[in-house]
Amino acid sequence: MSDPTVDQLADVVARTGRLIDGVTTEQWTEPTPCAGWDVRALVAHIVGGNALFAATLSGEAVTPQGYADSAERLLAAFRAPGALEKVVTVPFGEVPGTIALHLRLADLMVHGWDLARATGQRTDYPDDVVEQALAFSRSALPLVRQQGGPFAPSEPADEDAPVLDRLAAFLGRKVS
């Protein structure tokens, strides 16, 4: 499994931003595949996650100001010299910056999948980046679950299903 790059993150951030921009006024209260979250709550979680990771890496206060601002701060924090080697605290423990980058990529793509499902949009994340996130998740998630991480049990998915569906299922989404 190869390590992700900040350029991959920038691409995923932009693609997720386009999904958020595609939400219509009527869709903000629609349910999502994340139990108990409507579209508004899901987008708030995405923005908050960006802000949290940016603050963890940069040492600055968590101050989300909307998706574009949180994305800009996230990318700047990951691009800072030494960020990928730094040990940072995420919600379930201390990890190197490279692992934090893996986590953020997987989270953005799965929540982008959630958002697309809830709003009738299509995702266009690169399959190679999703494959990388799936391989990482398969290796790391058992440890996260042992520590009480926030992931639902994996759901079944056909091995010939699109890779993003397989990632979403692995992280607890019903894909059928």
Rank of each mutant, 00 (worst) to 15 (best):
G148E: 02
L57R: 01
P162N: 07
D128I: 02
Q27H: 12
S58A: 13
R122I: 03
L164Y: 01
A10T: 00
V87Q: 12
G49I: 04
A51R: 00
G149L: 08
A61F: 08
S58K: 02
R166E: 09
Q8M: 13
R173C: 13
Q27F: 08
P150C: 03
P156C: 11
A68W: 05
P126V: 06
V39D: 10
T25Y: 07
P150S: 04
Q27S: 13
M109S: 00
L167R: 00
T63E: 15
F170Q: 09
D165H: 09
V88K: 05
E85P: 00
G17M: 01
Y67E: 07
A133L: 09
S154I: 09
A14E: 15
T123C: 07
S139E: 15
T24L: 12
D127K: 08
P126W: 03
A116S: 12
T119E: 11
W113K: 03
T89I: 10
S176N: 13
A14V: 00
L108Y: 10
D158T: 07
S154N: 06
T29C: 06
Q65C: 08
V47T: 14
E72D: 15
A51H: 00
L115N: 06
R138I: 10
D124S: 14
T16S: 07
T25H: 12
L115R: 03
T98I: 14
A100D: 03
A61M: 09
L52H: 12
L108M: 13
T16Q: 06
E131A: 14
T5L: 05
R104E: 05
G149H: 10
R166M: 10
V43P: 01
R173T: 12
A61H: 11
P33F: 08
R122L: 12
W113H: 05
V39L: 07
P153V: 12
L74H: 05
